[in-house]
């Protein structure tokens, strides 16, 4: 029947409406969200920026970023590890496939490969705009909604568009290769690792107690990264974490797209070589 699926979709909608009415009458208890927050959430909101309790605050008006990179920084650190293990898994599946092998030798001009000139011109115009937006999202992550993850994935979208529109061969000639993105990603991860122990090193140099993922001075660890830099609110380590995470996410996702977009013939030839060995 032609309209069978539309009919079933309407039936599902009616089912939801009727069931919701049953739930409202008390069939499954209350579905209302609470009027007040839990104590933990209140404490996070209270301590996000609070210059009167300097021993506990993060000095960032963005509660989400202060949880992501300060209150629960170790959580995010290991979640970042999961992210890059997945990317390393993708790289491991494509071991031996070098997308640059053929295209390095033969010089190609921009007009020969990729999509139409209209698409290329539009991409050329939007590339700097979107990169600027992504960097702004990452740099203002401690002030406004945004941060390293958001900026990195926004930059990855436009880099994917460049890879598709200008074709993989041309992008590789312009320097977006497996090696360069891997190096940028590793630089970002190294930056995150160094930032996480920055205050610890500072404390060892000064000779007082300090912790990993410490940002502002704490009660028994009176060292920290300054929250204000030349009158601007930078929230200590948060801005560094956001910059490095943006770099690592953008480069890591672009790396997987370079591998995913590699030509089938190249991969199949590598697979055949594996089989004959």
């Amino acid at each position: 029947m032609k309209y069978e699926r539309a009919l079933i979709a309407v039936a599902i909608v009616v089912f939801i409406l009727v069931l919701s009415y049953a739930v409202t009458l008390g069939a499954m208890g209350s579905t209302l969200p609470p009027r007040d927050l839990r104590l933990l959430a209140k404490l996070y909101l209270w301590l996000a920026i609070n210059p009167w309790t300097r021993n506990l605050t993060v000095m960032s008006p963005e509660a989400v970023t202060s949880i992501v990179w300060d209150f629960r920084g170790l959580d995010t650190f290991f979640e970042t590890a999961v992210l890059y293990l997945a990317i390393i898994g993708t790289v491991a599946i494509y071991r031996g496939v070098y997308a640059s092998s053929k295209s390095r030798e033969v010089p190609i001009s921009e007009d020969e490969v990729g999509m139409s000139p209209i698409a290329k011109s539009v991409t050329k115009i939007t590339l700097p705009i979107v990169i600027a937006v992504a960097v702004a999202i990452a740099l203002h992550g401690h002030l406004t909604p945004g941060g390293g993850f958001q900026g990195g994935s926004t930059a990855a979208v436009i880099l994917l568009l460049v890879l598709v529109v200008f074709s993989l061969q041309y992008s590789i000639r312009m320097g977006i290769t497996k090696g360069s993105t891997l190096a940028l990603r590793s630089a970002g991860l190294l930056g995150i690792a160094v930032t996480s122990i920055l205050v610890l090193i500072l404390g060892l140099l000064v000779g007082c107690q300090s912790f990993i993922f410490q940002n502002q001075p704490k009660a028994y660890a009176p060292v920290g990264v300054p929250a204000f830099l030349d009158g601007m609110l930078v929230s200590g380590t948060l801005i560094l974490f956001n910059i490095f995470e943006c770099l690592a996410v953008a480069a890591g996702l672009t790396l997987t797209f370079i591998l995913v977009l590699t030509h089938e013939e190249e991969i199949r030839s590598v697979m055949k070589g594996d089989r004959h060995e």
């Binding site: 963005e62 989400v64 909604p145 941060g147 958001q150 994935s153």
Partner: peptide
């Protein structure tokens, strides 16, 4: 808004 900013590109 943080989730929207990461969810739309992804």
């Amino acid at each position: 808004p943080d989730i929207v900013l990461v969810y739309i590109p992804v």
